[in-house]
Amino acid sequence: MLADYATHLRASNNKRGRPYAEKTVTAYTKAARTLDRWLGTSPQVSASQTAPAHGVGLGVAQPASFLDCDAQVLNVFFRAHYDGGEGERQGGTHTLQRNLRPFFKWLSEEYDHPNPYDDPKLQRYAHPTDVRPTTLSEEFIHDLLQITGGGNPRVRAFEKVRDHAIIRVLTEGLRAEELLSLRLDTLHLEQGLIGPVTPLKEARASGEGRFIPLQPKTVLAITRYLRARDGHKRASDPWLWLGTRGRDRLSYSGLYRMLNRRAADAGYGNPDNPESKSIVHPHQFRHTFADDLLSAGVSEGDVMQVAGWKDSTMLRRYAADMASSRAHAAVKRMGDRY
C-alpha cells in the first residue's frame, strides 16, 4: 500500500499544479510509515482504553491496518507521538499530522475509506508560534572555517577543501536542498554568482530560480575545491559536491554529519555521543545569514530577494533570534540624540 501511495505522489501534482518534489514524497511516505510502525507495535489502543488527556473512549478493537484508523485512533496515535518525545515538541507532532493528511485523502479516494481528517473529533496540533530559529555565533562559524583549513592554499586534502567550501556557501543563505542541488553549470565565479539555484516549491517551473551573490572568500574557496575535485573519480559528474572515498554526490545526511563532525573537531561536542549529535543544523546558517544582512543595514526587500522569500513573514521569523540585539545596536549608533 505504501509503495502504491509513493507511486501516486510521484505521478501527481501538488495544490500549486507542480509535481511533488522527491523530498516531499519522502516526508509524506515517512509519516505513513511512522503510523504503520505504531499500528504494529503499540499496545495502547484497545476497546477499553481512553486516549490520554483527550478523554476519547475508543470503543474499537486494536487497529490492524490503515483502514481501521478513524479520528479516535489517530487521536491516540498523535498523543503517543507527542508524549513519547518523537515529536520533540508540539511542532513535530503538527508536522506529522500535516504530512499524514494527503495519505488519508488518498485512502479515501482509492479504498473508499472515511477520511478521519474530515471528522471534527480529530484533535489538532498547531505549529508553535513562539519558537525562534537560532543563529550561529561569529566565533562558531570562524572555528568551523579554521578547522577545515582556514582557506590556506597549502591545504590540498579533498575532504577539507570541500568542507571549507561548503561552509562558505552555507553562509550565503542557501537552503540545504539548494546547496546539494548545485551543478557545475550553476557556477558563474567570474561574476561572483551561483545560480539559478533550485527554485522554491511555489516556483519549480523550468527557468525559474534566483542568483546568489558570493563573498570573495567564497569564490576563492569554490575555486580551490574545483581544483581538488578534478582528481575525484566522479569528476565528470554534473553535481558540484561529491562524496569522499570516490562516492558520488553528497546527500543531506552526509551534509548533516559533516557539519556536526567538523563542529566536534572544533571542540563543540562529540558526534559519537547521542546527546550531542545535533550540535549544528544546516538551516541555522540561513537564520544567521538573515541576521547578518539585516545587521549590516541591508533592506528587508533586498534580503527577501536574495533569500528567495516571497513573504516577509519568513524574514521576520528567521531574524527574530537577534532582533533585540540589532535594535540596541541601531540605537547606540545614533549616539547622543539631544
Results as ranks from 00 to 15, higher is better:
Met1Val: 02
Ala6Cys: 08
Ala6Arg: 12
Thr7Met: 03
Leu9Ile: 02
Leu9Gln: 09
Asn14Tyr: 04
Lys15Arg: 13
Lys15Met: 10
Arg16Phe: 07
Pro19Gly: 03
Tyr20Leu: 09
Lys23Ser: 15
Lys23Asp: 15
Thr24Tyr: 03
Thr26Ser: 14
Lys30Leu: 13
Ala31Gly: 12
Ala32His: 05
Arg33Gln: 09
Leu35Arg: 07
Leu35Cys: 05
Leu39Ile: 09
Gly40Trp: 01
Thr41Ala: 15
Thr41Ile: 11
Thr41Cys: 08
Ser42Arg: 07
Ser42Lys: 10
Gln44Pro: 00
Ser46Phe: 06
Thr50Ile: 14
Val56Ile: 08
Gly57Cys: 03
Gly59Thr: 06
Ala61Pro: 14
Leu67Phe: 10
Cys69Asp: 12
Asn75Ile: 08
Phe77Gly: 11
Phe78Ala: 06
Phe78Trp: 14
Glu88Asn: 03
Thr93Gly: 11
His94Ile: 05
Leu100Val: 06
Arg101Leu: 05
Pro102Arg: 02
Phe104Glu: 11
Trp106Asn: 06
Ser108Val: 02
Asp112Tyr: 05
His113Tyr: 02
Lys121Tyr: 13
Lys121Cys: 10
Leu122Ala: 10
Leu122Gly: 06
Tyr125Arg: 07
Thr129Ile: 05
Asp130Ala: 02
Glu138Met: 04
Asp143Gln: 14
Leu144Arg: 05
Gln146Val: 15
Ile147Phe: 08
Ile147Gln: 14
Gly151Tyr: 08
Gly151Lys: 10
Asn152Asp: 15
Pro153Ser: 08
Arg154Thr: 13
Ala157Ser: 08
Asp163Thr: 03
Ala165Glu: 10
Val169Leu: 03
Leu170Gly: 07
Thr171Glu: 04
Gly173Cys: 04
Gly173Gln: 07
Arg175His: 00
Arg175Thr: 00
Leu184Arg: 01
Asp185Arg: 13
Asp185Gly: 12
Leu187Ile: 10
Leu189Asp: 09
Gly192Leu: 02
Leu193Asn: 05
Gly195Pro: 03
Pro196Phe: 02
Val197Ile: 14
Glu208Trp: 00
Glu208Asp: 12
Gly209Val: 06
Arg210Ala: 00
Gln215Ala: 15
Thr218His: 07
Val219Lys: 07
Ala221Thr: 14
Arg224Phe: 01
Leu226Cys: 12
Arg227Pro: 06
Ala228Phe: 08
Arg229Ser: 12
Asp230Lys: 12
His232Arg: 00
Lys233Ile: 09
Lys233Gln: 14
Ala235Ile: 04
Pro238Met: 13
Pro238Leu: 09
Trp239Lys: 02
Trp239Phe: 12
Leu240Glu: 00
Leu242Ser: 03
Arg245Asn: 14
Gly246Trp: 09
Asp248Phe: 01
Ser251Ala: 07
Ser253Gln: 15
Met258Phe: 04
Asn260Gln: 04
Arg261Ser: 11
Arg261Glu: 15
Ala266Asp: 11
Ala266Arg: 05
Gly267Val: 11
Asp272Gln: 13
Pro274Asp: 08
Gln284Glu: 02
Phe285Lys: 06
His287Pro: 01
Thr288Leu: 01
Phe289Lys: 04
Phe289Gly: 03
Asp291Glu: 13
Asp292Pro: 01
Leu294Thr: 08
Ser295Met: 11
Gly297Gln: 11
Val298Asn: 08
Glu300Phe: 10
Gly308Lys: 02
Asp311Arg: 12
Ser312Trp: 06
Met314Leu: 09
Arg316Gly: 02
Ala319Thr: 08
Ala320Glu: 13
Asp321Ile: 00
Ser324Asn: 06
Ser325Ile: 00
His328Leu: 13
His328Ser: 07
His328Gly: 00
Arg333Pro: 03
Arg333Leu: 12
Met334Lys: 14
Asp336Cys: 05
Asp336Thr: 10
